[in-house]
Amino acid sequence: MGYFVRTNDQVNLFVEDTGEGKPIILIHGWPLNNKMFEYQVTALTEQGYRCIVPDLRGFGRSGKPASSYDYSHMADDIDAIVRFSNVDEFHLAGFSMGGAIAIRYATRYRESGLQNLFLLGAAAPSFTQREDYPYGMTKEDVNGLIESTYDDRPAALAGFGENMFATEVSEPFNEWFFQLGLEASGHGTIRTAESLRDEDLRAELTDIQAKTYILHGKKDEICPFTFAQILNDEIQASELIPFEESGHGLFYDQQEDFNQTLLQLLNADV
């Protein structure tokens, strides 16, 4: 079932709501949309979970405002979905940029009923390098990606996606995955890339109260595995689960192992 949720600043967010049972909210990464979780929604709903999977503002079928693409605005969007969905207790999983947004949500809405937080190849605590943080892309590299998005967005996204998977994927799958990024708005793609460049979550990691599971590919070339190690060191109630043969797209590189691990962790909480 698909429906729209209106945010506090009057943006209509599209949400795919499938299955019955304990709810899990899945937040997609940049520059994708909720369809990226196709193989997780199938596995989770077959095991009795309700999957609430939005398109972030600017992406997929959601509204595409000109501005307000910082992590706090998008965390507020998740809160609007939680309230509309009428869930008292739920799990939250975020992939890549979605992981960063999930962290901001967990620290901004500590009394929300969030039970477990799943960070999946998260673009956190900072996606870009800083004076005391030599990990990830440089700000200059992200600026170059942004500039190329202004000039030729399909080519920019194709180049970015070359390092998504560590295993071989079929050409039809690769084309389908590429097209997900083109469903986004150009300005939403650019504004969220600016957020990836500028946001820094390091100071709030110790504020996370929910039990946190960090799933990350050891061969990730977009969000290095060091990100996961830092998250695990700083988040008090956290567990790091490495995926040895996965790149950034661990949800597909080791699809079966990933889905089974996610289900085991969810079932352990029942």
Rank of each mutant, 00 (worst) to 15 (best):
S195M: 01
L157H: 01
W176V: 04
A203E: 12
F160A: 01
M164I: 11
E168A: 14
R197V: 10
A155H: 09
G188Y: 00
L201S: 09
L215F: 15
V169A: 07
E221V: 05
N163Y: 00
A155C: 02
S185C: 05
L215N: 12
G161D: 10
Q209Y: 01
E194V: 01
D200F: 07
Y213P: 13
M164H: 09
A203K: 10
L201D: 04
I214R: 11
I208Q: 06
R202E: 12
F177S: 03
F160P: 00
A156H: 03
L205F: 07
F173H: 02
V169Q: 15
L205D: 06
S185W: 02
E194Y: 12
F160W: 14
T192R: 00
R197F: 05
L196I: 00
P172A: 08
A184G: 13
V169N: 12
D200W: 04
S170W: 10
Y213F: 15
K218D: 08
N174C: 08
A158P: 00
Q209N: 10
L201A: 10
T167C: 07
A156Y: 06
G186H: 07
V169E: 14
R202G: 09
T189N: 07
L182Y: 04
E194W: 10
I190W: 01
R191E: 15
L201I: 01
M164G: 01
E221K: 11
T189M: 08
G217Y: 02
A193S: 11
G217V: 08
S195P: 08
D207A: 15
A158L: 02
R202L: 12
A155G: 00
E221P: 04
G181F: 02
L180S: 11
V169H: 15
N174Q: 13
S185G: 04
A155F: 05
W176M: 11
A193I: 01
